[in-house]
Design a protein around this nucleic acid. Structure first.
Length: 644
DNA sequence: TGAAGGTGCC
C-alpha cells in the first residue's frame, strides 16, 4: 500500500514537475519506478543525473538491476558503492539466488558484517526456491532470532513440497499463527483432497476470513459433496464474488449445470470472473452453444473470455473453427497460442509454435508442455531438441512441469538415456516428475529400472498415486513379472489406500493373460466391479487370441461384443481366434456380423522421422516413391533373412 | 513523513 502511494505521487510529479520538490526521495522513488516498469536504461540515466546520492540511491540501483535479472550490473554497482549496509548485501545475495547461483549467495552471506533477520530469511527462501529445502531447514534451525516471515517461509516451503507432516509439526511450534498461514495449510489439504484434515483445521481456526470459507467451499465441491458446500455457503457471514463463483463452479464441476445457472442468475455482484467461470463451466459440460450465448450477453469481455470460447472449440476438436476464432480475436495472449498449439496434434502445432515466437510472444510453461507433447506424439526428435534448446535459453530449465514434458518427449522418441539426464538435473521433483521418469522406463520395458526408481521414490518420502501404480503394473506385465505385479496391485490398495481404476484391472488381466494364465485372468475379471469390467474383458480377449484359447475367447467375446462401445477391433480379434484354429466359417461369420453393425477396424499406421520430416505409412504402402521405397524393401528383405 | 532487502491463501 505504502509503495503504491509513493509510486502514485512519483508518477503525478512526473506529469507536473512543479507539484513536488525534486528532493532525494523523489529521485530514489523515480528510479525504482523506472526499474519496476522495466526501463533499466532510464533508471541508469537518472542515477547519473541526480545531484546527490545517498546509500538508499545505491541500494535502489542494486535492487533494480536484480529485479530485472541484470546480475552483472547489480554486482558492478555493489562493487563501486562508497558505503554498504545489510540491505545492499541482501539485495545482491537475492540477485544471485534468483539466477540459481546458490553457492555465490552463500559465500556473500558469510561475508555480511552485521546480519539481521531479513538477510537470514532471504537466504532461506532462496534455498527453498532453488529446491534445496534441506539447506533451508538447516539455516532456519541455526537462526539466532526468527520472525513471522521466517516461520511462514519455512512452513509454506514444506506445504509447497507437500511435506505436510513437517509443515504441521513446525506450524504447531510456531509462535506466529496468522490466519493466512492457516489458510495456506487449509488450501493445501484441499488441493490434496484431504477432507477430514481440512475440516479439522477449519474447526480449530481462531479467526476465519472469506478465504478460509472459500477454501472449504472448494474442498466440498471437489469431493462432490454439494449439500455440505451449499450449507456452508448459506452459513457464511459475508459472501464475496469468489464465494459465489466457488459455489457456481462446484455445481458446474459436478455436472449440475441447471443449479449452477440458477445461482449465477441470483448473484448480487458479477464481475468478469463469474461470467468467465460460468462460460467455462458450460464448456466443461460440453455445452459450447450455451457458452457462446453467454459470451454474446456479457457486458464486457476480457482476454480470458475469448480464450474460453477458443478452448471450447478445441475441446470439441473443431480445429478449423478454433483457428477462425483465433484469427478474429481482438487481442491474443500466450494462453491463446498455447490452446491452439495443444489443439492440433500434428506438424501444424510446430509451425504455430514458430509463428508465436515470430509474433513476439514469449513461450511459457504451457507452451512448452503443449509443443513437447506434439513432438512426443509425432516422435519428432529434431523438433524436440530444438524446443529443448529454447527451454534452456528462456530460463525454464528448472520448471518441474516443462522438465516432465522433456522426460516424456525423449522417452517417446526412443532416447530414454536423455530422459534420465533431464530427471537427474531436476532441482525440484514432485510425484508427477517421479511418475514421468518411471513411465519413461516402463515405456521402454525396463522393468528393473522401474522397480528400482519406485523404491527410491518411496525412500525420498514421496507418495505414489494411481499413475505410479499403472506404470509399475505395465512394466511388470511386459516383462512377465507376475509375482511383483500382483504384489504391487495389493500394496497399492492395502498400503496406500488407492482404489484401482479400470486401467489397473486391465493391467492385471494383461499381466496374467500375457504369460498364459488365461483361466486365472478370466476368474480375476469376473471379480472386477461390474462398471469397470469392459476394458478388462477386451484385454482378456486379446490374450485369448495370442494364446489361441478358443473356449475362453468365445465366452469373453459374448461379454463384450454387441455392447454400446464395442468397436471393430474386437470383432477382428475374435475372427482371428477362429482363423488361427482353421475355423474359417466362424471367422467370416464374425466379419459379416461386424459389417452388419456398420463397424470397421481402423487401419494401423506407423511413422518415422527422416531428416526432420515425419513420414507416416501403413501396411503395403507404396506412396513414398520419392523416398526410394524399392530400395527400402530390398534392404528390409536382406535384414529379415539374415542369420541370427 | 516519504525512497532500498525477506514471507503470505480462495
Amino acid at each position: 500500500m505504502k509503495k503504491t502511494m509513493a509510486l502514485c505521487s512519483t508518477l503525478s510529479s512526473f506529469a507536473d514537475p512543479s507539484a513536488a520538490p525534486r528532493d532525494i526521495f523523489w529521485w530514489n522513488s523515480a528510479i525504482m519506478a523506472c526499474f519496476r516498469n522495466g526501463d533499466v536504461e532510464k533508471a541508469h540515466k537518472m542515477f547519473d543525473e541526480m545531484p546527490h546520492r545517498n546509500l538508499v540511491s545505491w541500494n535502489c540501483m542494486v535492487t533494480g538491476y536484480v529485479q530485472n535479472r541484470r546480475i552483472l550490473d547489480a554486482q558492478r554497482v555493489f562493487d563501486s558503492m562508497p558505503k554498504r549496509n545489510v540491505v545492499s548485501w541482501t539485495a545482491l545475495m537475492t540477485g544471485y539466488l534468483r539466477v540459481g547461483r546458490v553457492e555465490d549467495a552463500r559465500n556473500l552471506f558469510e561475508r555480511i558484517p552485521e546480519r539481521n533477520v531479513v538477510c537470514w530469511n532471504s537466504l532461506i527462501s532462496g534455498y527453498v526456491n532453488n529446491g534445496r529445502i534441506g539447506d533451508a531447514r538447516k539455516l532456519f534451525d541455526e537462526m539466532p532470532k526468527r520472525n513471522s516471515s521466517s516461520w511462514s517461509s519455512m512452513i509454506s516451503a514444506y506445504i509447497r513440497e507437500k511435506h505436510l507432516d513437517e509443515a504441521v509439526r513446525l506450524f504447531n511450534q510456531s509462535p506466529f499463527r496468522s490466519t493466512s498461514l492457516y489458510n495456506a495449510l487449509l488450501s493445501s489439504y484441499v488441493e490434496l483432497g484431504c477432507i477430514k484434515e481440512a475440516e479439522d483445521l477449519f474447526s480449530k481456526m481462531e479467526t476465519r476470513d472469506a478465504i478460509s470459507f472459500n477454501s472449504m467451499l472448494t474442498c466440498y465441491s471437489r469431493a462432490g459433496k454439494m449439500e455440505l458446500a451449499k450449507q456452508l455457503f448459506d452459513e457464511m457471514p459475508v459472501k464475496d464474488v469468489v464465494s459465489w463463483t466457488a459455489i457456481v463452479r462446484g455445481y458446474l464441476q459436478n455436472g449440475n449445470v441447471a443449479q449452477a445457472f440458477a445461482l449465477f442468475d441470483e448473484m448480487p455482484i458479477r464481475d468478469l470472473m463469474s461470467w468467465n467461470t460460468m462460460m467455462s463451466g458450460f464448456i466443461q459440460n460440453g455445452m459450447l452453444d450455451e457458452a457462446c450465448n453467454l459470451f454474446d450477453e456479457m457486458p464486457e469481455r476480457d482476454i480470458v473470455s475469448w480464450n474460453t470460447i477458443l478452448q471450447g472449440y478445441i475441446s470439441k476438436n473443431d480445429i478449423l473453427s478454433a483457428r477462425r476464432w483465433f484469427e478474429s480475436m481482438p487481442k491474443r495472449s500466450e494462453t491463446s497460442w498455447n490452446a491452439l498449439i495443444s489443439g492440433c496434434q500434428s506438424e501444424d502445432a510446430l509451425a504455430l509454435f514458430c509463428e508465436m515466437v515470430r509474433a513476439g510472444f514469449k513461450p511459457n510453461q504451457g507452451t512448452f508442455v503443449a509443443v513437447l507433447s506434439v513432438c512426443a506424439s509425432l516422435v519428432s526428435i529434431v523438433c524436440g531438441i530444438m524446443v529443448h534448446v529454447r527451454v534452456l535459453r528462456t530460463g525454464y530449465e528448472h520448471d518441474t512441469c516443462v522438465m516432465c514434458s522433456l522426460i516424456t518427449m525423449y522417452s517417446q522418441c526412443g532416447l530414454v538415456d536423455d530422459s534420465v539426464r533431464v530427471f537427474d538435473r531436476m532441482l525440484k521433483r514432485d510425484t508427477i516428475a517421479w511418475n514421468a521418469m518411471i513411465s519413461a522406463y516402463a515405456y521402454h520395458g525396463l522393468a528393473t529400472e522401474v522397480l528400482r526408481l519406485y523404491e527410491s521414490m518411496i525412500q525420498s518420502g514421496f507418495h505414489p498415486d494411481h499413475v505410479t501404480f499403472l506404470n509399475l503394473l505395465l512394466a511388470c506385465s511386459h516383462k512377465g513379472l507376475i509375482d511383483e505385479g500382483c504384489r504391487c496391485f495389493q500394496s497399492m490398495q492395502e498400503e496406500w489406500g488407492i482404489v484401482p481404476k479400470a486401467e489397473h484391472y486391465s493391467c492385471v488381466v494383461d499381466l496374467l493373460g500375457r504369460s498364459g494364465f488365461i483361466e486365472q485372468a478370466y476368474r480375476f475379471t469376473q471379480k472386477v466391479p461390474e462398471k469397470l469390467q469392459k476394458n478388462a474383458w477386451e484385454t482378456l480377449l486379446s490374450a485369448c487370441r495370442v494364446h489361441g484359447n478358443l473356449e475362453l475367447g468365445e465366452l469373453t467375446a459374448r461379454r463384450v461384443l454387441g455392447g454400446e462401445n464395442s468397436d471393430g477391433g474386437l470383432y477382428v480379434q475374435l475372427s482371428n481366434i477362429y482363423a488361427a484354429k482353421g475355423k474359417w466359417g466362424e471367422a467370416s461369420n464374425v466379419r459379416a456380423l461386424m459389417e452388419e453393425h456398420g463397424l470397421k477396424k481402423e487401419i494401423g499406421c506407423s511413422w518415422i522421422e527422416v531428416k526432420g520430416k515425419v513420414l507416416s505409412f501403413v501396411s503395403n504402402d507404396h506412396k513414398h516413391r520419392d523416398h526410394q521405397v524399392d530400395q527400402m524393401c530390398r534392404e528390409l528383405d536382406q535384414i529379415s533373412f539374415m542369420p541370427e
